[in-house]
Simulated scan of single mutants.
Amino acid sequence: MTVKMIAVDMDGTFLTSQQDYDREKFKQLYNKMKEQGIRFVVASGNQYYQLKSFFPEIATEISFVAENGAYIVSEGNEIFNGEIDPKTIQKVLQILVNFEEGHIILCGKNSAYVSLNEPDEFVAHGQKYYHRLKKVPDLREVKDDTLFKFALSFPVDQVETVLHQLHVALGDKVIPVSSGHGDVDLIVPGIHKAHGLIKLQELWGVKTEEVAAFGDSGNDLEMLKHAGYSYAMGNGQPEVKAIAKEIISSNDENGVLLKIEELLQN
């Protein structure tokens, strides 16, 4: 059993419900990963600037598949940057007007953007995941950035219905995926976490059967289907548990770190 790349989702997977992780234990495991030549990859729907804040000492050593694969940075170097066509951005914003319960963050390479009309509590929620978040008068006027994702938020009990409605309304312009807790991301077709892992594998010569991946939500499905070793969290969504090769302890029980420890012993 050979693992050369370990990819972890963050919210609901690597991070506990308190938005942290056992830093001392991870430090020991990370040093072992380095000794064994195993690459550590953070694969999340969140913004790169937020993700790297969790790993201040090693942010320039590890890799980030951020924004569900739309922005990839490895060892401080930009590897890939997706983009949604500006006309598609305008069309999607037009369609989203019909989803009255939804709140919108438009995500770009330099920053994420939120309308001045959004309630303060939604903006505060967004700032946890987007450390660069600018308030703008009108999302349709955001021009000077490479835009690659919409991050939407709905009441949790509406998500299943909304996902279906978005699929119908958007066609193949952008793909809606659930990222847990009422959040829905609209991503570029074909650009997801698995696409990000493939880019890094090509860079490093890592085979798919040498990849271990951990996740809990709909935006992890492609990555878990792709990886040679796939692990769903005990707290994961049913469809994620159904496709993973193994279900492990929850994010609040150190599930990821315990499994990594096991993988490093083999």
Rank of each mutant, 00 (worst) to 15 (best):
V240L: 05
L139T: 01
K34N: 13
E35L: 08
G37E: 04
Q265D: 10
P119Q: 11
D172M: 15
E101W: 12
G69N: 00
H192T: 01
V65W: 00
V159F: 04
L139F: 08
E118H: 11
K143P: 12
D20M: 07
N98W: 14
I89A: 01
I6S: 12
L200Q: 00
A59M: 12
I175T: 10
M233Q: 09
D185I: 01
E61R: 08
V159C: 14
L106D: 08
L264Q: 07
K25D: 04
E57I: 04
S250Q: 14
E222L: 12
K259D: 04
S111E: 14
S178D: 13
R23N: 13
V162H: 13
Y130F: 09
M5L: 12
K128H: 11
E210M: 09
H226S: 08
L200I: 00
A242P: 14
E246F: 06
L152S: 09
Q201S: 03
G255V: 09
R39L: 08
S153K: 13
E253W: 12
L106N: 05
G126M: 06
T2E: 10
A112S: 15
V123R: 12
I104E: 10
A124N: 10
G69P: 01
I260K: 02
Y49H: 11
W204Q: 00
E101M: 14
D172F: 11
L15V: 03
V42Y: 00
V211M: 04
N117R: 12
D22V: 04
N77H: 15
